[in-house]
Amino acid sequence: MMTTPQDEEGPRTTLASRITSLLGSGLVQLFLVCVALFWLMPTLGLFVTSLRSPQDNASSGWWTALLEPAQLSLENYAALLDNPDFVASFVNTVLITVPATVIIVVVASLAAYAFAWLEFPGRDWLFLIVVGLLVVPLQVALIPIAQVYGGAGLYGSILGVVLFHVGFGLPFAIFLLRNFFAAIPRDLLEAARMDGGREITIFRRVILPLGGPAIASLTIFQFLWVWNDLLVALVFADAQSAPMTVALQSEMRQFGANLDVISAGAFLSMVVPLVVFFAFQRYFVQGVMAGSVK
């Protein structure tokens, strides 16, 4: 998907057309360089801002620091990591994201296996319902689940946030995995069944190893989705269970006065997603693409 098929236009005959094409390619290069800069600058701006003191940020633009690197320091980050509330919100983000990702992968794998390889009445209809549920906006569930949580004592708890993410992540997760599992060669399963393997053994020995890439895509995608969530946590978490996104959002009300906290916090919240993105970009891209028309 990311290859660059180029110079495949066949032999160019005239000098004039070659010059035109060179000129055109120069313009294309220039344009794309500008676009790339345009895409990088905002993030760079946040990063540089987070390395400057509030006084410097108040008196001049972040770009001046590129000429005077002496302004830059890690003090904002040190202050943030000394702040127990912020550290707690970071821990909450982890405590929400990891279980939500694990549970969803397990539950969705089991269900996807059933949809792909087990026979039962109404299977196709049931799966179409799952496909339909893919696009349901999660706003629909906020009020009903808030009432349920109120009664069940889950309101304001990390568990409540986790379970909500699992529920709303499932249609996509099942959809992605089922399509992948269904593509596993039938012979492999038949052979395993012939050998008298139990379904759970087949699931563990055949499906999970072969489904690795799809499960990896789902894991990465789900991890980032939950890590980056604001709305669900905003509604269901309380001050003790709030993840980073909610903590930062509450800082936005004083935007400007607390730029040191917001910029460093926002950048810290980006570090894990960026590392995951660069380490597993292929799986992440596949997950995102599988989510088209979600």
Partner: peptide, 13 residues
């Protein structure tokens, strides 16, 4: 890969 919150902060700046 990054949250809308972080993107929002970036563009607020």
């Amino acid at each position: 890969a990054v949250s809308f919150l972080a993107s929002g902060v970036i563009f607020r700046l």
